[in-house]
Amino acid sequence: MASSSSTKKITLKSSDSVTFEIEEVVFQSIKNLTDDVADDIEILVPRITGKILAKVIEYCKKHVEAASSYEKLFDDKLNKWYTEFVEVDNVTLFNLIWAASILDLSIKTLADMIKDKKPEDIGKIFNIINAYRPE
């Protein structure tokens, strides 16, 4: 096992100037969020707030941890973690979808939210007023 001092660290800076220092292996999971992945000291992650970037990093760390410990990516323990991870308010969920790093999980959660719902209930979830008209 490599020592933590030899692990390359990368600093990410959110659109609202919150910085995060992460290991390079975690960065590999989220580098599609950045415009430039050169050997910068600090990499700007545009259009993503610190709150959402923290969630994305948390997700990526868990994903890397699961892969490195040879856990099945979708075993019961990990599925429970994923379910709890996306138990967030709608604005946060939509921002996670927008961040796209966790698009599949976020979309699945969104689909589960509207599954078997009446159109008026779906309208309430998305704050749509009078979207459905019988005529």
Rank of each mutant, 00 (worst) to 15 (best):
M1A: 11
M1N: 09
M1D: 09
S5L: 13
T11F: 05
L12D: 06
K13A: 05
V18R: 08
V18H: 04
T19V: 11
T19L: 01
E21Q: 12
E21R: 10
I22C: 07
E23S: 07
E24V: 01
E24P: 04
V25K: 15
V25M: 11
V26N: 08
F27N: 02
Q28I: 06
I30R: 07
I30E: 11
L33D: 01
L33C: 05
T34A: 15
D36R: 04
V37Y: 04
V37Q: 06
E42W: 01
R47D: 10
T49N: 08
G50L: 01
G50E: 01
I52H: 02
A54N: 06
V56K: 04
V56S: 00
V56C: 03
I57W: 09
Y59N: 08
Y59T: 03
Y59V: 03
A66H: 12
S69P: 02
L73C: 08
L73N: 10
D75Q: 09
K77G: 10
L78Q: 14
N79D: 09
W81C: 09
T83V: 03
E84V: 04
E87C: 07
L93K: 04
I97E: 02
I97T: 08
W98K: 14
A100Q: 13
S101R: 02
I102L: 10
D104M: 05
D112G: 05
I114W: 09
D116E: 15
D116M: 06
K117G: 01
K118Y: 03
E120T: 08
D121M: 07
I122M: 06
I122D: 03
Y132T: 12
Y132W: 13
R133N: 11
P134H: 04
E135H: 04
